[in-house]
Deep mutational scan, measured.
Amino acid sequence: TSEVNPQMLQDLQAAGFDEDMVIQALQKTNNRSIEAAIEFISKM
């Protein structure tokens, strides 16, 4: 599995997102940004 940015993971979990969804979103967006991860999650 590709690495996820631990700070982004922590921030998104703090915002109430599920850890598994956050990890998948960060991997799919290559840790580009929190906004990109949220957009990915919203389309899941």
Rank of each mutant, 00 (worst) to 15 (best):
I34S: 08
D11Q: 15
E35M: 06
E39Q: 09
P6R: 14
V22M: 01
P6K: 15
N30D: 11
E35V: 04
I41E: 09
L12R: 01
A14N: 10
I23V: 14
E35C: 03
F40Q: 11
E19V: 09
Q24C: 12
L9W: 01
L12G: 02
Q24K: 14
M8S: 03
P6A: 14
M8D: 04
L26R: 03
R32G: 08
L26P: 05
E35N: 08
N31L: 01
V4Y: 06
E39K: 10
M8P: 01
N30G: 14
L26E: 06
T1A: 12
E39L: 02
E39N: 10
E3T: 10
E3P: 11
T29L: 00
E39P: 03
N31W: 02
D11C: 07
S2G: 14
I34C: 13
A25I: 02
S42P: 05
L9S: 10
F17K: 01
S33R: 00
P6Y: 10
P6H: 13
Q7F: 02
G16E: 02
K43T: 13
A14V: 06
L26M: 02
E39S: 09
M8F: 09
V22H: 02
N31D: 03
N5C: 07
Q10H: 14
E35D: 13
Q27V: 12
V4G: 05
Q24V: 13
A37E: 04
I38Y: 10
G16L: 00
N31C: 10
Q24G: 06
I41R: 05
L9C: 10
N5S: 08
G16M: 00
L12Y: 00
N31V: 02
A14L: 08
Q7G: 09
L26N: 05
T1C: 11
K28A: 15
R32H: 14
S42Y: 10
A25C: 03
R32C: 13
Q27S: 11
S33D: 05
I38S: 10
G16W: 00
L12I: 05
Q10R: 14
S42Q: 15
S33Q: 00
Q27K: 15
E19H: 13
V4E: 05
S42C: 07
T1G: 14
F17Q: 05
F40V: 11
A15Q: 14
Q7N: 07
Q10V: 07
E19A: 11
I34V: 14
Q7L: 06
V22P: 03
A36K: 08
L26T: 01
Q10T: 08
T1F: 13
F17T: 02
